[in-house]
Amino acid sequence: MAIAEPTNNSPSYIDKLVVPGDVVLDLSSMSNQTIKLGGGLRQDCDSITAMKAGMLRFSKPNKYWVESSQKRYVPSAGDAVLGIVVDTKAENFLIDIKGPALAYLPVLAFEGGTRRNIPKFEVGTLIYVRVVKANIGMNPDLSCMDASGKAAEFGPLKDGYMFETSTGLSRMLLSSPACPVLEALGKKLSFEIAVGLNGRVWVNAAAPSTVILVSNAIMNSETLTSVQQKLMVDKLLQRTQ
């Protein structure tokens, strides 16, 4: 077999494909360094193992996670997602974030939230939220504040159109140098976009035709290379003008 023996030093796995069971990090070889684990990784004593197949990513200084593309979303702490309000309870809003269980958004988890000013959301409201806690076997906890307690763009989204894509595409849209589709669209059109890591994307613009064009261009771009994406957007724009 031509497959190389897996080595134990961790950097070799970064930006490589991992499969469930791969020991991607060995904590015993790292001296008192704290690391943060994202989705798809788990800790067994001194070793960090992959739980799903995908690309292992690392972001400085100490975050590790596994990236893959799927229709279902597995909540993990720190993700910004788009949720739909399902129900309102005394303490929490019940939010659907495409995960295996409904998520709780405490009614006080808003900037300057007190018992007096609890926001009212009708069922079906789309909100941009952050996952705070995501433990296995528990309903995830959400918040409409960033870590420092500011509203920071989180909250309900008005009007516009929401569509669902895979989690892989939503990560691609968020990647920084801007994703080619968004770059090409943004040169010609003005629109607002909110991308949730759970595969939901919200688009708003002045004219409905712009919203339709942008959302369909994004949905079509999933399997295209960056050059193809640009060509597709150019063609779409030509047809409408």
Binding site: D96, G124, M162
Partner: peptide, 12 residues
């Protein structure tokens, strides 16, 4: 509740 598909007001 978690497994049913739902639609947001925005889409409607």
């Amino acid at each position: 509740l978690a497994s049913t598909w739902r639609m947001s007001v925005n889409e409607k």
